Simulated scan of single mutants.
Amino acid sequence: MTTQAPETKIVESFRIACDGGDGALGHPRVWLQIPLETGFVECPYCDAKYVQAGFEGKV
């Protein structure tokens, strides 16, 4: 059995919310701040990677 790679999402904002999606199969909603230095943040629950649109292709 293989593990799927975490999802990468391109977002416009530097502050985003993640609930894991999938309704009841998700996780508690958490608010994440994308650092201006790195341009991305990873969700501590589902490992989804959020990349700010200005950093797309640079991360």
Rank of each mutant, 00 (worst) to 15 (best):
S13I: 01
V51F: 05
P35C: 06
M1C: 10
L32A: 09
Y45L: 08
P6K: 05
R15L: 08
V41P: 00
Q52R: 04
V11I: 06
I16F: 11
V51C: 04
D47L: 13
H27F: 04
G21C: 09
Y50L: 11
P44F: 09
T2Q: 15
P44C: 01
P28M: 09
C46Q: 02
A48R: 12
H27R: 06
A53G: 01
W31H: 13
F40Q: 12
L36N: 09
V41I: 15
K49F: 00
G57R: 05
P6F: 08
A5L: 14
G20R: 02
I34S: 02
T38R: 15
C18V: 01
R29K: 14
V30Y: 00
K9C: 06
L32P: 00
E7T: 09
R15T: 10
D22P: 03
H27Q: 03
L32M: 13
L36M: 09
F55A: 03
T2D: 14
G26R: 07
W31Y: 14
A24I: 10
D19A: 08
A5M: 10
G39R: 00
C43W: 00
L25A: 12
Q4W: 14
L25F: 15
Q33W: 10
I34F: 02
E37R: 12
K49E: 03
K9P: 01
A24T: 08
V41Q: 01
P6Q: 08
I34D: 01
E42M: 13
G26Q: 05
C43R: 00
G26V: 05
F14C: 02
T8F: 09
F55R: 02
A5R: 14
E42H: 12
V59E: 11
S13W: 07
G26E: 08
L25E: 11
C43N: 04
R29P: 05
G39V: 02
I16W: 03
K58C: 03
V51G: 05
A53C: 05
P35I: 05
W31P: 00
T38H: 13
A5T: 07
G39T: 01
R15P: 00
P6M: 08
P6H: 08
A48M: 13
E42S: 14
R15A: 07
S13R: 13
C43T: 02
R15W: 08
M1Y: 13
I10V: 15
V41D: 01
E7F: 06
P28G: 03
A17S: 14
A17H: 11
V11P: 00
S13T: 09
A53T: 06
T8P: 02
A48V: 10
C43A: 10
G20V: 03
P28K: 14
D19R: 12
E37G: 02
P35R: 07
T3Q: 15
L25T: 06
G26P: 02
T3F: 15
C18K: 01
G39M: 01
Q52H: 11
G20E: 08
T38V: 07
V30N: 08
P35M: 12
E42A: 14
T2Y: 15
K49T: 05
G23F: 14
V59T: 13
R15N: 09
G20S: 06
A48I: 09
Q33T: 10
K58Q: 13
K58P: 00
Y45D: 05
E37D: 15
G57P: 00
W31Q: 11
S13V: 02
M1H: 13
T8E: 15
D47Q: 15
V51E: 05
G54E: 05
K58M: 11
D22N: 12
G57H: 04
